[in-house]
């Protein structure tokens, strides 16, 4: 019945406009206030720090490595002025292995360095620390690139495993050398 009545009204033309304009002015006022506030707190570049959160087994192994005062294996990575790397691996006080990675086309050969580090990590899975010794002229950007290469594996790398001492299970990890120490800061 009501429907019928409305129909009649439309026909008779008493309610000419069936649509109406929404008053958006208060909404606009709110947005004009909100936008400057949000602009103040907005970041257009995201800052991160170089560290890593890890699974428990891997974290435990890292803590052990950090607390181990009598380290058997120490890895030292030298960054030379001529953009070549020298990787020195010391086992205790006696044996010492040195790998030279020359520059490629006048640039740091980061791919070869990464491959070498993966190989070293496969050999010494419980070592997480690298002593970095950059030359004074090496730029900060290059140091960060090297740290990125050393910190973790890439998707195309072979898988790395750590054996949990308690359960004797192998745990897969992408972490290689998260502890980077600038060993020439003091007395270098």
């Amino acid at each position: 019945m009501a429907f019928k009545r409305n129909k009649i009204r439309f026909k008779s033309g008493s309610d000419e406009e069936s649509t109406y304009d929404l008053d958006l002015s208060p909404m606009l006022a709110l947005m004009v206030t909100l936008i400057p506030i949000m602009l103040l707190a907005t970041v257009f570049v995201k800052v991160t720090i170089i560290e890593s959160a890890l699974p428990q087994v891997v974290q435990k192994a890292i803590e052990e490595d950090r607390n181990n005062k009598n380290k058997k294996i120490s890895i030292q990575l030298n960054m030379k002025k001529n953009k070549s790397f020298y990787l020195n691996i010391s086992k205790g006080k006696r044996s010492r292995k040195s790998i030279k990675i020359s520059s490629r086309g006048g640039q740091w050969d980061l791919n070869r360095l990464h491959t070498q580090l993966v190989t070293i990590k496969q050999k010494y899975p419980r070592t997480f620390r690298i002593d970095l010794v950059p030359a004074e002229s090496v730029s900060y950007e290059d140091i960060v690139k090297v740290i990125d290469e050393a910190r973790g594996t890439k998707s195309e790398d072979p898988k790395l495993y750590i054996r949990d001492k308690e359960s004797n299970k192998r745990v897969e990890t992408t972490v290689m050398f998260p502890d980077i120490i600038f060993s020439n800061v003091v007395g270098g």
Binding site: V45, V47, T48, I49, I50, S52, E141, V144, K145, R151
Partner: peptide, 11 residues
């Protein structure tokens, strides 16, 4: 600042 693949939030 240099770019890095690190994703740790600042402290």
């Amino acid at each position: 600042l240099p770019m890095s693949s690190s994703y740790t939030s600042p402290v």
